[in-house]
Structures are given as structure tokens and as C-alpha cells.
Write a protein that binds this DNA or RNA. Structure first.
Lengths: 338, 338
DNA sequence: CTGAAAGCGCTTACAG
DNA sequence: CTGAAAGCGCTTACAG
């Protein structure tokens, strides 16, 4: 390459890094050679040499790519990154700590300028180590205990509270809760919201109908079956995330039960196909895309100014009232009485 | 690090690469030092030095991460890779050629041993270049024209044919088709299946009701509205992928139309929440997870033996008959007459 | 303004 | 069995 242009590799490097000092004609010569050879510098070598140089790549650690909530987040991050000439590389660790560690190692040593992560739990040591090593980090969805870190999430407690309150105002008093994995901070926050609402309306907290296992489809289906099989089953079920909701729906449909007449259901997480569900699902909507966008913004700021104070962005949820909680039956009643 | 163990960096390197030649005691010394310092080799330097050494990382180029079909594929790839001590790094190019190029550059120069890609179109030059450069490549979902490449896909034409035939047997003769982006090979294959079925049953091909734009939700909603607004609207609509289906459903529901009485719908792509849709969706199921698994298997084989003959794996689709095409109304009729 | 040289952190023939 | 040395492809002070 340098031969082709008849200059030294040093000069080529200068041209590539648009060093103003290079003479115009030399620059042209080099540029032509670059064109002709379709040359592009070896990024691995660049990285090895210049540790400070930014790679314009962000690492994204996602706990579960099958969860549509994260898909929205990813889109938000990616679009913002792309608009800032950066790219995003995703590692999906499926909520497995070993896999998380593997992806961290890979992304760390390969290229990334920083990470956006949803820690597998509140005391995630791998993420904490990353922070100690000085990597720019932004957490999404879940924070880290005893560690200062930028965070973008939603007010989970408030979101859950609103959902339960909505159910209570509709007349439900025995409300089951299929929670997610209790090692995940958001699960606990949603649980707190549930309890807060029940207490506020002087309703008993029956541990028998507060059940949790994993945060997936299967758990949703299984635990809903358990709830429905109880001698005194709940009249309404609150599901802790969209996968659990779908599992619950599967169980309910397979038993030929009518929603919301036989059992009402309200889910945490709204999805773009909520309105196509049977019946349209009432749900607590998290602004996933916005979470992604904001977290990427924070990361870029952090990369530029590693000393700026830590920021916590708590976004609001929105209760999307549709037909799965009894609003429909009320409407029907109204129509009947006309 | 080498100092700590009192040996040369060369010896450390040998231990790290489990070179049998190292004396046992030396090895122990080094291992202890590694433990103590929690040392791990710099992957960037490793890569720079040993171009032949595999990184155990596969690059995955996905056209649209919002499409649940690809999510299944990703899971299949990832689990297989993980079982083979490899990791997957995903680049989501959103069906944008520029983004695709960007991610190729990134993944290429960073680390990957090979790529699994869904080419943005049949003559995707970037992918072709990658092949020319000698990268191990496996294509999924879509092949490459005039280029030998490993491929895992589904028999799209057959799948579409089955869907249309099912509709015809149910009595539909005017069947609308909301196709995806016509630059994507699968769109064309599905179109061929549609035409094949219509011809086989001597039904006219009316270009007015064969409409396509992009492969996304919005196009599905918009084109379905167009179809429904026709003076002579179709009695059934075939949607070319799951996003289009959802868009179509949105339009149909928002008009208060009854499926399948007012209009039947059958979609390409099954999703895990198909049974929760209103009504449960009849769909052509692609084995996404299996596509992923097989493609990863092929890639690993290709990496090990770059000269093995090119393989094309065509998997079968499965028609999941549920309630959105009129099967339900038939059942209802049956019940009525009893 | 440009080149020669050092060095980023490894691996691997080559000596010994 | 182990170390010294070369070299992977860059970048960047340092000379000139």
C-alpha cells in the first residue's frame, strides 16, 4: 500500500487519520492508491496500537432476546447509535451468568467503547468489574446495588401499583400475581407495587396467590394453571412481564375460559400485537424504544466525559386499558341497560 | 505477568495455549500467577499475531431484529454455537444496505471466524465480496445469485402454495396477497407459490389484489386497507410474513370486521403467540430455530473444511390450521345443524 | 513536510 | 524445556 503510493506507512497512516500536516499532493497520491487497492486499515492493529482511539462500537448485553421488550430497547439504542456514527454489537446471554461473562470478555477485548447492559442481578460482579476497570457503562432496566452507575429504567413499582389499582377499582379483590424471577430487581419492584396497592385498599396479601419462578412463557403457563386450580382461585391475574402474560393466556385459552368474565388478566409490558390478542390486552406499557434511546445518549455522554455525575433516568409507564380486565363487561352492561 | 511467574512471556504464552512441551512445575508456577493476577490475554494482540487462530466468534447479520422469525433463528444459532464453545455477535442492519456494509466491516475486522447472513438481496455484493475474500459464510433464508454458498432456508414456494390451496379448498376464489419487499428473494418465491396454486385451480391472477411494498407492520396495515377499500375486495388475504400479518390484523380489527366471516386471513410465519391472537391465526410455520441450528452447524463445518462442497438445506414449512380462514365458520355450521 | 524507529501484546520458529 | 527475537499492522513522538 505504502509502496504503491511511493510513501512510507507513516504517511499513509497520517492521511488515514487526516493529519493536517501532510502535503496536499502527497495526500492525493495516497488517496488514489487507497482507492485503487480498495485498501482499508486493519482494525485489529489499530486497536492494539491506539488504545485511546474510539472504535465507535457499543456492546449491548441483553438478557433475553426473545423478550419483545428488549427488542424495542435494542432498536432505540441502535438507531441512536447509528445516528451518531456508531454501531451496536449485541450479545444475548439468555439470563445465564456464564454466558454473560463470556460475552463480556469477547466484547471487552474486541472493540467496544462502552457497554449498555441489563445486569443479570443487582450485584452482578462482572458488570461491577467492568465499571472498576473504567469502561463506560449504562445500565438499563435494572440497577446495581452499592455501585454508582448510569441507569435508565421505568418506575416499576408505580406501574404495578397502577395495574393493581385498576383491577381493584373494577371490583376485584382476590388478585393473583405471577411474578418473574425473583433474582431480577424489577420483579421485586413490581411486587412492591402490588403490595402497596393491596395495602392501600385494605386487601389481604395472600402468599398463596403470589407465585413466581422464572420470567418465561413456560412459567407463565404453569403458574397460571396452578392459580386456576386453587380451591379459591383469583378472579384476576397480574402477570409480571409479556412472556408470562402469553403463557397465562395460553393456559386460560386452553381451558376454554372467558376473559375477563371467568378471569381477568393484566400484564406488565405492552407489545405491538396487544390489540390483536384475544381479547385485546390491558397492559402496563414500558417505553422500550425510549429506554434504548436515552441509554445510548447517556453512554455517548459518558464516553465523552467519564467524570460527569451519574444519572438515573426513570421513565413513566402507561396503563393501556383495553378489554382483558372487565372494562368490556361493563360496556356490555351499559349497552344492555340502554 | 511473566515477571510474576519468573518466566518469559513466551512461556506464559505456551502455557496459555497448552503447549505440552512446558515442564510441569513451570506450568504450575505460571498458572498460579495467572490466578493471582486474574490475568487474561489481550485478544486484540492475539488476533493480530495469529491470523489463523480461530476466535470462536461468529458474526450474525440479521435484516430485522423486530421480526420474531429471526429471533427464533438467532436462538437456534446461538445455542448451537454455545454448545460448541463459540459465541455469536449480532449485527442488525434493518434491511439497510449501508448499515449492512458497516456491520460487515466491523465484524470482519474485529474477530469473527465466519458469518451467518441473510443477504439483503440476491446479488448482495458485500456478501459476495466476503466469500471472495475467503470468509466462511452460510446464508439463511435467502440465497445468492450466481454464487456458490451454503444455504439454509425453507421451501417458500411450497409453503405459499399450501396456504393458498387451503384457502381455495375452503371456497375462496378471490384471494388477496400482501407481499413483502419484492427485492427480497423469499418474497418472489412466495409469490410464485401463490401463482402456482391459483393457476392449478384455474383461478384468475388479478394484479390489483397482489400488492407489496415493504415487509413491515405499516405496509401490512396500509395495503390491507387498500385491499378492503377495493370495489370488489378479496374474501381472503394472504400476508407474506408475520409483521405484515399483524399490520393486516390491525386494519381488520380497527374496522370491526369479523375474521373469518368478513375476511379470512392466513399468514406466512407462525409465531409463538399465534394461538393467542383473535382469532387464533392459521399460518405457514417456518422452523426458525431449526434453520438457525442447521446454519450454525454448516458454518462450523465450513470453517473446518473450507473445501467441502456447498450444501443447500431446504426445510419444510408446516401449515398450522387454526381459526382465521373459515375452518371456524364450518365448525359453527356443523354445530348449528346438530 | 516526511521517514525511520519504537512499541502496542501477543505467538512461534529458532537456538541453546 | 525455555528464552531471545522477529513480526503481526498499525500510530506517533522524534529527527531531519
Amino acid at each position: 500500500m505504502a509502496d504503491m503510493a511511493g510513501v512510507s506507512v507513516a504517511t499513509v497512516s497520517r492521511v488515514l487519520n487526516s493529519d493536517e500536516v501532510v502535503k496536499y499532493e502527497t495526500k492525493i497520491k495516497v488517496m488514489n492508491a487507497i482507492k485503487k487497492l480498495d485498501y482499508s486499515p486493519n482494525r485489529v492493529a489499530q486497536r492494539l496500537r491506539a488504545t485511546k482511539k474510539s472504535s465507535k462500537i457499543f456492546g449491548l448485553l441483553i438478557p433475553d432476546i426473545q423478550n419483545p421488550f428488549y427488542v424495542d430497547v435494542i432498536r432505540g439504542i441502535e438507531n441512536y447509535a447509528y445516528a451518531n456514527n456508531s454501531a451496536v454489537v449485541i450479545g444475548n446471554f439468555s439470563q445465564e451468568v456464564k454466558k454473560e461473562k463470556l460475552y463480556i470478555d469477547i466484547l471487552k477485548s474486541e472493540a467496544v467503547d462502552g457497554f449498555i447492559v441489563a445486569p443479570s442481578n443487582e450485584k452482578d460482579v462482572y458488570i461491577k468489574d467492568l465499571i472498576k476497570e473504567g469502561f463506560p457503562i449504562v445500565c438499563i432496566d435494572r440497577g446495581l446495588k452499592d455501585t454508582e452507575v448510569d441507569l435508565v429504567k421505568v418506575d416499576n413499582q408505580r406501574g404495578a401499583f397502577n395495574a393493581i389499582e385498576h383491577l381493584i377499582k373494577l371490583g376485584h379483590t382476590r388478585i393473583g400475581f405471577v411474578t418473574g424471577n425473583k433474582l431480577i430487581p424489577t420483579t421485586l419492584e413490581r411486587l412492591a407495587g402490588y403490595e402497596e396497592a393491596m395495602k392501600k385498599y385494605n386487601l389481604p396479601l395472600d402468599p398463596e396467590i403470589i407465585v413466581g419462578k422464572k420470567s418465561d412463557y413456560e412459567s407463565g403457563a404453569e403458574l397460571t394453571a396452578y392459580l386456576l386450580d386453587l380451591p379459591n382461585p383469583p378472579t384476576a391475574i397480574f402477570t409480571g412481564n409479556n412472556l408470562l402474560t402469553l403463557g397465562a393466556l395460553e393456559t386460560i385459552h386452553s381451558r376454554g375460559l372467558n376473559i375477563p368474565v371467568d378471569v381477568a388478566i393484566i400484564g406488565f409490558d405492552d407489545v405491538y400485537w396487544s390489540t390483536s390478542l384475544n381479547p385485546p390486552l390491558t397492559a402496563v406499557k414500558q417505553p422500550g424504544y425510549e429506554i434504548g434511546r436515552r441509554s445510548c445518549e447517556l453512554l455517548i455522554q459518558r464516553i465523552q466525559a467519564s467524570d460527569r455525575p451519574v444519572a438515573s433516568i426513570i421513565l413513566k409507564t402507561e396503563l393501556m386499558i383495553r378489554k382483558s380486565c372487565g372494562a368490556q363487561s361493563k360496556e356490555v352492561k351499559k349497552t344492555d341497560s340502554e
